[in-house]
Amino acid sequence: MICSLQLIRLTFRRTLPLFLAPIVSAYLVLPLIAAAGLASGSWETALENLTYGEQAILPVGGLLWAFAYLQVWVDSDGEETMRACRRGKHVCAAELLMLNIGFAVMLLPALVAGTLFFRPLWTEYARLIPQGFFFTGLFYLAAILLRSVTMGGMLVLVYHLFCVFFCRNVEMRGYCLIRPDALANEAAFPYIPILLSGAAMYLLGAWRESRPVRQ
């Protein structure tokens, strides 16, 4: 556990921009989006803007942490040395899960601020957690299978953009896990299926990663 935290800390020490990007998104970009709504309209517009921004930015923003961590293990020159240190038995799932939890904790002050300023935002927050879990699981599995974090990241990004652009399309809406246009209390959100599919992808990714390279 302590060693995993140390690995995460040193990973972020070398990829500081990726670590800061989600924090800047949550504490600078989103308030600016909400402020723009307030300036141009009403509280409702501001809240709508905030929800849209939060759904469009944060799930992918949180993925940057997983990207930074997994990149070292999948794509870097040092991958071979690192895997040898653990005799080819290391899996990154535990650290990625810790990053998921860290991301949720990081968002808590933003949630409290949003709740004080607008209205209780627990449902939005509760929606972000399984989304982040799902996307990290998808990214992890894709990166391990494709042996490339870039390809894995692109896959998730393409799906995310699909959701952002097609969430208003009636036919496509059913395929969108992220619905930036819907306030949480207006849309039934499939928490359990998302959590379960996220967990399944985590497990599959960990299983695949634990398998040594066999040609």
Partner: peptide, 27 residues
């Protein structure tokens, strides 16, 4: 075991000590 591969070119942003700490954590 200790292993030095053909290509060991990682962590340009970290200091020598931090790089070593990374491997110490891994081990």
């Amino acid at each position: 075991i200790g292993y030095l591969p053909q290509r060991f070119g990682m962590f340009k942003q970290l200091t020598v000590y931090e790089t070593m700490a990374y491997f110490a954590a891994l081990k």
